[in-house]
Write a protein that binds this DNA or RNA. Structure first.
Length: 425
RNA sequence: GGAGAGAUGGCUGAGUGGCCGAUAGCGCCGGCUUGCUAAGCCGGUGUACUCCGCAAGGGGUACCGAGGGUUCGAAUCCCUCUCUCUCCGCCA
């Protein structure tokens, strides 16, 4: 959420930002409503002031005079209550509108309509040239009995799956490797709730707007399954005022992630590229409200992900996500796409976002700076490793002619010392 | 699931209708003091919105878990919800 004071001061910047993101937003209507709410608030404050003063006088008056004085106050009270009711309704409407105002993208965000106009900023590693016809992950899964999508669908519906045998172990190995790598860099590991209250979804910027992508419980429990550990981790310090000396806070969490993937019917239907549930290690950074500091963190969290991909010997590229492909909350986003032979291209595996105050303001997540001033934090996050897509890349890229898979050295300790997996290894 | 207790400022903890945005202690910040390992003394110390002011600063309003109600007036009375704790039951 943007600061209403910022919207008042820079309405044109907000409009331009929304236009760049291709998100409709009636800034003028917000300003009109804001003015109305504010003027009404002043009037109500004055009415309350008169009312409080009068009440105090009644308290000081001799008991005999009180009923008469109280009678007079009753009329005042009625009109105050009407105004308060109206004011509350207007405020709620304004708040609803403010929650939908998109964050203003950074100047470095490229113009563009959709992901086809994202701008590649870096490439690492050479996609491997196979001297045999490589199998895709489904074929490899069948060969080794690693993947069962049929029973997955029978038990849990489409886009659900079982991982078995070595691939199930490999999933754990990759997650554990990614987690430990981040802990070594000073990130505090966390195990987190994946079923959260709606307000946390609002606080992190997923609601309103993203309701269709989230699973929710029925009316007995008004909870939502998170699509990423970013949600509980970023909200961890909700409503707190942190000491500036305790910043930055760097957290890393492994969690299950749940996505409805509504509106993706027919898209990526083969294989495990797009699924309803997966494991992911996520990094989250909270720090002071300084754009330069945030930018530095942004580069750091991208580096952290690159570090993991390089250790796993997977070719990737980084794209600067264009305005039209950017969500409402982000200032800027870098996606990392990893080479997947079955796609004959790069597939998104990481998403590094910088939010400035957008999430923190919604979460009421603040800090007290060295001067004692209370300010809203900045937040960022990025994937470290997301399970199924990382497994697709690993087994497809590192397969041999027989369909066995060479493991990168960094995974050996997590796979009981094994250097390869597959039938003949 | 049953029975009970509770939720107050960074923390502990008073407050049962007007003198309470809230006693006190601790902590923290500033100052003073004393030669003795640290203590003592004095002062300050919530957040948000808003108005006035160039500013320093000042005024108003709201907030005592959340929401509603009673009342001229609510931290205090009533209702609903959330959360915490204790005991019993059940499950792991």
């Amino acid at each position: 959420m943007l600061d209403i004071k910022y919207i008042r001061a820079e309405p044109e910047a907000v409009k331009a930002g929304a236009a760049k993101k291709r998100i409709p937003c009636d800034v003028d209507a917000i300003l009109v409503l804001d003015k109305e709410v504010r003027e009404m608030g002043i009037a109500i404050d004055e009415m309350r002031n008169r009312q409080k003063t009068a009440s105090k006088k009644i308290g000081e008056a001799p008991a005999a005079d009180r009923p008469k004085l109280a009678e007079e106050q009753k009329r005042e009270k009625a009109s105050l209550q009407d105004s308060e009711k109206e004011h509350a309704a207007l405020q709620a409407r304004l708040q609803e509108m403010l929650l939908r105002v998109p964050n203003v993208p950074a100047p470095e965000v490229p113009e563009g309509r959709d992901d086809s106009e994202n701008v590649e900023v870096k490439r690492w590693g050479e996609p491997r040239k196979f001297d045999f016809e490589p199998r895709d992950h489904i074929a490899l899964g069948e060969l080794h009995d690693w993947i069962d999508v049929e029973r997955g669908a029978r038990i849990a519906g489409s886009r659900n799956y079982f991982l078995k045998g070595e691939l199930s172990l490999l999933e754990g190995a990759v997650m554990r490797f990614a987690l430990e790598r981040m802990v070594k860099k000073g990130f505090v590991p966390m195990s987190v709730p994946t079923l959260v209250r709606r307000e946390v979804m609002v606080g992190t910027g997923y609601f309103p707007g993203g309701e269709e992508q989230a699973y929710r419980c029925d009316e007995r429990d008004d909870l939502v399954l998170v699509g990423t550990a970013e949600v509980p981790v970023t909200a961890y310090h909700q409503d707190e005022i942190l000491d500036v000396k305790s910043l930055p806070r760097k957290y890393v969490a492994l969690s299950s992630c749940y996505r409805r993937e509504a509106g993706t019917y027919g898209k990526d239907t083969r294989g495990l590229y797009r699924v309803h549930q997966f494991q992911k290690v996520e990094q989250v950074v909270l720090d002071v409200a300084d754009p330069a500091v945030s930018l530095a963190h942004h580069h750091d969290i991208v580096r952290n992900a690159e570090d993991v991909l390089q250790a796993l010997e997977l070719p990737y590229r980084i794209v600067n996500v264009c305005g039209g492909d950017l969500g409402a909350p982000q200032i800027q986003k870098f996606d990392i796409e990893t080479w997947m032979p079955s796609r004959k291209g790069y597939g998104e595996t990481h998403s590094a976002s910088r939010f400035h105050e957008y999430q923190a303001r919604r979460l009421n997540l603040r800090y007290r700076d060295a001067q004692g001033t209370v300010r809203v934090c900045h937040t960022l996050n990025n994937t470290v490793a997301a399970s199924v897509r990382m497994l697709i890349a690993l087994i497809e890229n590192h397969q041999d002619r027989d369909g066995n898979v060479r493991l990168p050295k960094v995974l050996w300790p997590y796979m009981d010392g094994r250097e390869r997996i597959g039938k003949s290894s």
